[in-house]
Amino acid sequence: MRLHEYQAKRVFAEAGIPVPDATLATTVEEAVDAAGEIGFPVAIKAQVHVGGRGKAGGIKLAEDADEAREAATDILGMDLKGYTVDRVLVEQAVDFVNELYVGVTMDRGAGKPVAMVSTKGGVNIEEVAAENPDAIAREHVDPAYGLHPYQARKAVYDAGVDREVAGDVASILSTLYDLWDEKDGSDAEINPVMITDDDEVIAADAVFNVDDDALFRQSEIAQLEGETTDDDLEAMANEYGFDYVRLSGNVGIIGNGAGLVMTTLDLVDHYGGSPANFLDIGGGAKAGRVRNALEVVFADDNVDSVVFNIFGGITRGDEVARGINEALEEFDTIPNPVTVRLAGTNSVQGMEILNTDLVTVEETLEEAVQRAVADAEEVAQ
């Protein structure tokens, strides 16, 4: 579960991490009023789950009420990387002299949590990790004991943080780890931590993602779930119980298993296409579940073709084929061409059952993906 910035900052503030004064607004008038109450200058920030909001025009500074009105008018309702902005965070602007990064996540290679600090804040940390990995100081944590104070201090000093603010940054890192641990976090980041000219340390952004499987014991965070979905399609997919991520391409992808779907995404890209989504239909592929998956994918106006990649394990290929047939027969008109690849248990029988008036059947995944990419190109022309 991905919290919005305003939600994550609320969690951080309650734990003692300093954040700027801010108010959530859903209308231009609310944004202008909030800016006046907070005091100028302010930052007006789109609340959607995408990176690079500033470069995309989703974050603007305002020096007075007229600029605040203009910024809120521009941002509210805008399409930001496929998401419609319906709320903004109006936040006290921070006059900073330096930007840092602090974060906590699971290092799956080491099998341990890792706390991270970098003086390269304010930019994409993945780029920093790829281009200059030594710029990120890391401390692996024994989860039985937590992040020791000396580890937090060591990470801060190893990163080269100025001594004047090192103690405060170490305190933020320790608090962030405690939150990550106590609230079953998957990722917790502040990028940037802003340093002011009088050595104040402020969390100017906030990322906090929580393990979905732990929400049963995180009742306060679970109550926020309805507010965390930016997109109607993602909300629909959540309602149907699918693992779904909307992307920016035009080839819809449905598979049974996360690894299978990821492989399909990679092949779509490899053959020159662009994935429109990640949709893991999960175990079983009866007609109703297939129908729901197709409803989600067909509802995306960007989709020009669909590829099914199904591996029959416990679920038999002939059952899957009947489910696909029954689901497609419920549509008066099939909006987009559909290609199916079946493998595994009873896949041969399944491919014989599939109604080729409704779908194109391909024997290999490579052939199925190439067909779907070609269909998307043809529809898009």
Rank of each mutant, 00 (worst) to 15 (best):
L3V: 08
I221P: 00
G288Q: 14
T27S: 15
A25Q: 02
S305W: 00
Y101P: 01
L76I: 13
V28R: 05
D266T: 08
Q7A: 11
K112I: 07
F242S: 07
G317Y: 08
N256Y: 07
G323W: 05
L233H: 12
P143N: 09
P143W: 12
P337W: 04
Y150C: 00
A276K: 00
D181Y: 14
G288H: 07
E200P: 00
D66Q: 14
E5H: 10
F308Q: 03
L24V: 15
I75D: 03
A188G: 13
T119P: 03
D211C: 10
R138L: 10
A203R: 01
R10Y: 08
N336H: 15
N277T: 09
A170N: 06
A166L: 00
I38L: 12
D212Y: 05
R108L: 13
A15W: 05
R69C: 00
R291Y: 13
G58M: 03
Y150F: 14
I190N: 04
A34C: 09
L328N: 06
K9E: 11
L267H: 02
A31R: 09
Y271C: 07
A137V: 05
A135F: 09
E164F: 12
D107N: 14
T263M: 14
F242I: 10
L176S: 04
G350L: 11
I195V: 13
D79N: 15
L358A: 13
F311H: 01
L147D: 06
I202M: 09
L267W: 06
Y150T: 13
K45N: 10
E200T: 06
Y177C: 10
G249W: 11
T23A: 12
I44F: 11
E14M: 09
A287L: 01
Y177N: 10
G111W: 08
Y177Q: 11
G323K: 09
L100R: 05
T105V: 13
F96P: 03
V261P: 08
V28L: 04
E220T: 11
M262R: 03
A152N: 06
K183S: 12
L147M: 13
T339S: 09
I324D: 01
A8I: 02
E67A: 08
F216V: 11
E366R: 06
I314G: 04
A115G: 06
I190F: 07
S347P: 00
G257P: 01
N191F: 02
T84M: 02
